[in-house]
Design a binder for these strands. Structure first.
Lengths: 627, 627
DNA sequence: GGGGACACGTGATGC
DNA sequence: TGCATCACGTGTCCC
């Protein structure tokens, strides 16, 4: 399946409205429209943009820019001899409300990989399991039906034909990804100005970026981020491609719109596009929002006042326990998938409510639910118009930028602005879609605003829930309480790991230190060891390190030389039935370093058991740092 | 202020109903009663226990056991020459609903510390800030008024007199602490069966137990946990007290109720006391629940059906940003505080709602709020009776036990059971205290249960929130959304740290590896040390050589490697008060060679004295030639 | 007085 | 069918 063609625009709309953050945020902001208590009439539907300043309403069809951009992407990916699988332009933009910077999907081009070429053969060993394939296909099928109309049967038949390869899937779901305030590798590249090149799954796996880590799951071997003037280019390949500065500089030339004057320039030159530029996911049988009405605009100049998606099509995307996404792609025979139009996943979002998708299956087009984790539910008969909004995903793996963002950052500002749109719509008594289907309120006037505020608050809270879930692995049961509990235990888990790692690190550092010293003065081991260390007054904590090899263990204990630490250690070893066959004790001023090699005879301990047993014994009896 | 006397029982009730988990769970479960929309009449008040099985209703006054237990605690703390500040018995119990094991406060005795003796002088530099003192006093004052009745002015005057020292405070708030499933140091001690001794603030600070870490904040220097048959004894001191096995064994003897038959035995012999044994916090002017009605019972036999706290006095306790608790203690001139009766903080809890204590300040006895974090609010005219419940704290620092507990653990089962009690009460149409002060509902019958269920759900969610907050440091704004956001960023932060640490560790390991190899190769250091000595099968006698130069001595000891000669030598050196500053141990087959350089500090020996002293000691304990 | 935050009761949904 | 979960509107409090 070649994904690089412009002919599947409607599919893209759907996709953009559906795909989920690979692992960063399986849920999106807007819950699917609730049960249609008060069915909306067409008159309920409204949409309005209003430019607050000089910038006019965006041009309805800036195809030139779009195409220009896409051409270059295509040229880049095809012109280079390396076998890149895809390229994505992450667009830099700024949230007008918070001033936070964002990197969002702008455009992308998927060339394919070896697997794509093989996949027509059903026997081809696909990296994705059959179940996963089914899931993906179902998602695509569903999206297809979403676009084509109600005839699910026909599209379903078409959809079953070709596989969705891992890399293809990864590319597709990328459209919903975004990076806040320099988070992730894209953010780092953007802020540092330096490209980063990660070749090899191992590199990716340890990258400080969930996206990179996620990529490995989908067979990506190489990822490259190159800052360009409108944002950051991402190249990905299922093959291992070693660094060549040639390509990065080529990219810079091709995509530095600041230095080149081109039609595209006036759109992206400011390197800031509107995070609020909206693209509507076309609803079934609903032409009111033309997917081709896509526009570039300076976010600082444009403010969207009201926006409502009639008969909103919300598709839920979740991620299963393995972190695989469940997204959606239209089944298309097109050779190339193009997701251009500078859509931002921050505007068009997959909506995955946290209530186990309860509220959507009653929609007119509700999906039959399946038991697996792919919870794609689609509802086209909302009770009230759903605003289009989505969360800023905090990429799961914790990019540095993400947490540098600090505690004060508001994770839901885009969402809030979206809410505001809706709010102002709702204040319009004409088009007000009968609130929520509940109480008409006793003719109050004040609650009107209050209700909206509360709505926003709830939404914000949910935002946070989604974000939290995105960073907590193995959330047991899709429900809020479980999430909170799991988050708590997960944090504890992390802290413990951190603690042990830290001590291990310290131990290793000391070891290195010792070895270094030993190397420098191999034989000068006078009983006084020389005054190798620091001046007086220094205090030492108890450091211990245990390394185990088979039935033998190496123990290093560093502590203050008071209270006869040697006796402590040795009797501890005795109590643990460990036979010493090598030991050394050195004292430098008031620091004592003991090293021992022991053999387990009767009982066997794991390294951790031994370590903690010894540590607690030591800790209980030894004074810590004198401090 | 000496806290060790039985005369302030009522105060204790209050305390137990107020103090909060030091840092594990600053909030407790039950929100304060809302605004008194429908004031309760005395007839609304009911309480009933029902024993489901053979076990009869508990004896109304098991004072013998209580006193016996307490006597021993007192004896322990006063009889020992070390200056222990307090002792606490953590009681092992089992949650009947979940089968989880709990360690809860059973009894405690506060002896005091140096600071206590100095504190009458107002100029004494207290570790607690003036604001903190004010906070503590206000809490105590409030509790006092809670107990004495409504005259807040008079008790307030009394309360202002003496300071609440840090250690005192720590002791007081301990009463609400509990440990789930072997979490924290108490849990470890309980499960391992081994005592642990932490001497020094640094040791405490790095302990895998929030309680220990928290203790350091309050000036505790030494903490000891000794498993005893009913649970775990905790000794604490503001002084540094080094390990002496004497005291731990003494404790074991004094408190091993299983091996001794004593009146107490039949109460605690099973080492399991009811986690549901309830002690009621006496409400103002309300004698219906007698604080002296405290009882031991086997939880498997007793089930509490209905329980409601009339005119419930709920006191909110929170923790400020520094993790200091804001708790409560009655101002009492008593010399000793006694918190006995095997109260469990799981039954009597501080209630700190997460809504920034909004709902309580309208209570009849509401506290004037201050701007700092000490949010003590007290309401004694509830709209409906508050059930008594509390959360299982998940100790913040992440004890291993805690997170081993897994994701499936339900953090709020005790609370749930409590809720059930209330629920069954509420179904009683007579005593129903008009739900929540809101809608009377349009004469529905079904919502009655639904409402309650929803209440429970909310409460559970809040539970989780509290738990989560307890493990997330630096929660920016006391509100839920912030908490969620902060938790998310915190998790990311931890993950990043973990990652970087891991890579650092890897790097260091590689470094060590390299250095090791380097060290081995240049020297061709054969690992077997060469066959310097005789062939196999030969037996060695104990050879020792002592060489003395001034106050230092070089010792060489050669013996057979059985019976842990290293421990022998080292403890011999310890007993002789010789400080080791260099030592090495090598083993060749079954021959061990120890070399040590020691320094005489206090006592001086001649070379001969030392030699013979050591020799005889060694010869006495080491097997001579195996022959 | 108004906005933010929270708990509550309630209707509704899915298992 | 209960039971758990959720979102919603509302009352209320505090700043």
């Amino acid at each position: 399946m070649n994904l690089c063609a412009d002919d599947s625009a409607s599919m893209m709309e759907a996709l953009i409205a559906t795909a989920a953050d690979p692992q960063g945020c399986p849920w999106a902001v807007v819950p699917p429209p609730p049960r249609p208590l008060a069915p909306v009439t067409p008159s309920d539907v409204s949409r309005s943009f209003s430019a607050t300043a000089t910038s006019p309403v965006p041009a309805p069809a800036p195809h030139l820019d779009k195409e220009m951009l896409h051409e270059r992407l295509q040229a880049l990916i095809e012109g280079v001899r390396d076998s890149w699988t895809y390229v994505i332009l992450w667009q830099s933009s700024v949230d007008t409300n918070t001033g936070e910077s964002l990197l969002v999907w702008a455009d992308g081009c998927y060339k394919g990989c070896e697997e794509d070429k093989r996949k027509q053969q059903p026997a081809a060993a696909s990296a994705a399991s059959a179940a996963e394939q089914l899931r993906r296909k179902r998602v695509l099928r569903e999206l297809n039906s979403l676009i084509d109309g109600d005839e699910r049967s026909s599209s379903a038949n078409e959809a079953a034909e070709d596989e969705v390869t891992d890399s293809e899937w990864f590319f597709l779901v990328s459209m919903t990804q975004s990076f806040v305030n320099g988070s992730g590798l894209p953010g780092q590249a953007l802020f540092s100005g330096d490209p980063s090149w990660l070749a090899g799954a191992d590199r990716l796996a340890v990258a400080p970026c969930d996206r990179a880590r996620q990529a490995t799951v989908f067979g990506i071997q190489t990822m490259v981020y190159v800052p360009v003037s409108p944002g950051v280019l991402e190249l990905g390949s299922t093959q291992l491609i070693c660094h060549s500065s040639e390509i990065t500089s080529k990219i810079r030339i091709l995509f530095d719109f600041n230095s080149l004057q081109m039609p595209l320039a006036n759109a992206v030159a400011g390197s800031v596009l509107s995070p609020l530029s909206l693209a509507a996911s076309t609803a079934v049988n609903q032409g009111e929002i033309d997917p081709s009405e896509l526009w570039f605009a300076d976010p600082s100049l444009v403010e969207i006042k009201d926006f409502v998606l009639p008969n909103s099509a919300s598709v839920e995307i979740s991620s299963d326990e393995n972190g695989n996404f469940i997204g959606s792609k239209r089944n298309s025979s097109a050779a190339t998938i193009v997701a251009s139009n500078l859509f931002s996943s921050h505007q068009i979002a997959a909506a995955v409510p946290d209530d186990n998708m309860n509220n959507s299956s009653t929609g007119a087009m509700s999906m039959p639910r399946s038991n697996d984790e792919a919870k794609l539910v689609f509802s086209s008969a909302p009770g009230r118009p759903s605003s289009i909004a989505l969360m800023k995903c905090s990429p799961g793996g914790g990019s540095i930028g993400e947490f540098l963002e600090g505690a004060d950052s508001d994770h839901s500002d885009t969402e809030r602005s979206m809410r505001k749109m809706e709010s102002s719509l709702l204040t319009d008594p004409e088009k007000r879609p009968r609130k929520r289907g509940r109480k008409p309120a006793n003719g109050r006037e004040e609650p009107l605003n209050h209700v909206e505020a509360e709505r926003q608050r709830r939404e914000k809270l949910n935002q946070r829930f989604y974000a939290l879930r995105s960073v907590v692995p193995n959330v047991s049961k899709m429900d809020k309480a479980s999430l909170l509990g799991d988050a708590t235990t997960y944090i504890n888990e992390l802290r413990i790991k951190l603690q042990s790692l830290e001590s291990e690190k310290e131990g290793l550092e000391a070891q290195v230190e010792a070895l270094r010293k030993e190397r420098q003065s191999p034989r000068a081991r006078s009983p006084h060891l020389g005054e190798t260390t620091n001046g007086n007054g220094r205090c030492y904590g108890v450091e211990m390190e245990v390394k185990m090899l088979d039935s033998e263990a190496m123990i290093r204990l560093q502590c203050q030389n008071t209270n006869h630490p040697t006796a402590m250690l040795m009797s501890a070893l005795k109590d643990l039935n460990l036979d010493v066959y090598y030991a050394s004790v050195s004292v430098v001023k008031d620091l004592m370093i003991q090293q021992a090699t022991v053999k387990m005879s009767s009982r066997e301990y794991t390294q951790e058991q031994l370590s903690s047993a010894l540590y607690y014994r030591m800790a209980a009896e030894l004074p810590p740092a004198s401090r």
